[in-house]
């Protein structure tokens, strides 16, 4: 047989086809990608370990009194603690849950289920996406202008009420976006079947769409709650107390809503700032961070697990 290739070429091709050549570029590329991910993982680990290690001086010895203690001017004070911050954060979460969640989910229902596909709707949707990208300090400026200065007869000025309303506004666009995604993911057949049986659109939404979208909506609300709980910048603008807070209200003491307040992220900020003059506050800040992270990471993990189960079921 007369080959098209001369024998040397044929040998080379044969060797190329039969031996495994190391794909050097490919290996380096994958290694670089894995390094990037590893770096992210490493940073997360170091961050968590660093916080626990720095805060161990308090967490290990007096966790109970730290959780029930109050803001103090010296870090050696045995009654130094985060109780006021925890209570403030709890009430901020109540504001977010009662105001931002219903309004956000309702807006999502309107945009996905009712709104005609016209310029106005597209404008509203674009507007919500842009609101979600506005830096949180700017919401703080809005809260300062509107709730602290403008409506101080209603909110009482620099109070928990002003901060709660501000955070509710801050979180609302995120709730709308995540809830819209969850509602869009419900197959159109669900509501079409209901409509075909004579249900009104609201009946179809109430009985079919919302129950089917509930896990997705819940995920979105949990994620936005964790965002609200960790947010500090708008609270500083609205005037969270960064000095000493006189009273230490109980969890369900409703008078505190119209009085001065603080919250976990603010307590942390204040102690980090104090650590310049009193090194012991660094330990206190780290301990407070661990307390905050326990809540935030719990909210996030539940949300992620819920979403992953929901996703695998709907496929």
């Amino acid at each position: 047989m007369v080959g098209i290739l001369d024998s040397r070429t044929r040998d080379r091709v044969e060797v190329r086809l039969n031996t495994r050549r190391r794909d050097l570029r490919g290996t380096v590329f994958v290694a670089a990608l894995q390094f990037a991910l590893l770096l992210a993982l490493l940073v997360l680990t170091v961050l968590l370990v660093d916080a626990v290690r720095d805060g161990w001086g308090i967490l290990g010895s007096r966790l109970g009194s730290f959780l029930s203690g109050t803001l103090r001017s010296g870090s050696a004070d045995p009654t130094l603690g985060v109780h006021q911050g925890l209570v403030g954060t709890f009430w901020l979460a109540v504001f977010v849950a009662t105001l931002a969640f219903p309004v956000g989910i309702g807006a999502a229902v309107y945009l996905v289920e009712y709104a005609p596909d016209n310029r106005f709707t597209r404008f509203v949707e674009l507007n919500i996406r842009n609101l979600a990208g506005v830096p949180s300090v700017v919401y703080g400026l809005l809260g300062l202008f509107l709730f602290v200065k403008g409506l101080d007869g209603f909110t009482g000025g620099r109070t928990l009420a002003s901060a709660g309303l501000t955070l509710a506004i801050l979180v609302m666009p995120i709730v709308v976006i995540t809830a819209s995604e969850a509602i869009r993911a419900v197959p159109a057949g669900y509501s079409e079947a209901a409509l075909g049986l004579g249900a009104t659109r609201w009946d179809a939404i109430r009985t079919q769409v919302l129950p089917a979208a509930a896990p997705g909506i819940l995920t979105g609300t949990l994620l936005s709650m964790s965002r609200a709980v960790g947010e500090a910048a708008p609270l500083i603008l609205v005037g969270a107390v960064t000095g000493r807070l006189g009273r230490n209200p109980g969890l369900l003491d409703t008078d505190q809503i119209t009085s001065k307040f603080t919250a976990m992220p603010i307590v942390i900020t204040q102690w980090v700032k104090n650590s310049g003059r009193d090194q012991g506050f660094s330990t206190a800040a780290a301990a407070a961070i661990v307390v905050l992270l326990v809540f935030v990471l719990a909210l996030n993990s539940v949300a992620i697990v819920l979403r992953n189960r929901f996703e695998s079921r709907s496929r």
């Binding site: 961050l47 992220p265 800040a285 961070i289 992270l293 909210l299 996030n300």
Partner: peptide
């Protein structure tokens, strides 16, 4: 999820 947890860390914590 690891990346998502990193995304959920409050900015005060990263500041510290």
């Amino acid at each position: 999820p690891v990346l998502e947890i990193l995304a959920g860390i409050p900015s005060v914590v990263v500041g510290f």
